[in-house]
Amino acid sequence: MLEFLQQIVNGLSLGAIYALLALGYTMVYGIIMLINFAHGDIMMVGAYVGFFSVTMFGTNVLVALLVAMFACALLGVLIEKVAYKPLRHSSRIAALITAIGVSLFLEYIMIYIFTPNQRVFPAETFPLYNYHLAGLVISNKDLFVFGSAIILMIILQYIIKMTKTGKAMRAVSIDQEAAVLMGISVDRTISITFAIGSALAAAAGVLIGIYYNTINPLMGIIPGIKAFVAAVLGGIGIIPGAMVGGFLLGMLETLVSGYGSSLYRDAVAYGVLILILLIKPSGLFGKNTGDKV
């Protein structure tokens, strides 16, 4: 039982990171129906910004987190304006290929500038403490990762539900043309969506850096694709779905490694995804919509 609880604790931190990433995926998808494959790489850039903020300017972790989020928000908007906006009325697959292109570009430009070698987050930026709670080992890193993720998600919920911008985002994702008629600037709303999504990815990047200590230019690929799985699991385009999907995937992976075999962990994650898609194609939280004739 204790071991099971420990596995749950381990799964929560991993899940929180997946959830943060999945949110960005889902927001972008919800608004322009684009699978933004570069999302994982934006996370990687965020991790590097955080790294340099800590090592070169000696900032503390919270400042690094904010700097990375700000930088990646700009990067996200820039990518949208340069690469995705011209394709807004083209086929979805052309946009998808562009996203793959952006992803490769970010990976290899970082390799070119910063070498393929991994970099190590200095241990002193975030000294580790372990709390022993009735036999469970919980580190301050677990708490920090989990806590920051939850706080960011609450802020996001607030923005989407309570602010005018959030209303505009929801309106654009439901019906772009109607939104325009209501006087909403679609361009601006899309930019804001990218900014918020990318900032969340950057936060995830810095958290991964702190949690696992190492970063490298190809670190975004696997978490990126996993986060996409998480987003689809919860129902792509649906914000609470992405959170739940992220946590579910994190727990699932940890439990499979803990009780089954870690070799099949990825296969099980994809297998569950496919099962859910087959049973409820729109994801756990999705609404089934019929075809329009």
Binding site: S91, T98, G101, E107, Y108
Partner: peptide, 17 residues
């Protein structure tokens, strides 16, 4: 890979089909 990815993006922007 940088050139390759740039070519990919440019072709898709200017020739999405």
């Amino acid at each position: 890979m940088i050139l390759y990815s740039l070519a990919l993006i440019l072709i898709m922007i200017y020739r999405p089909l």
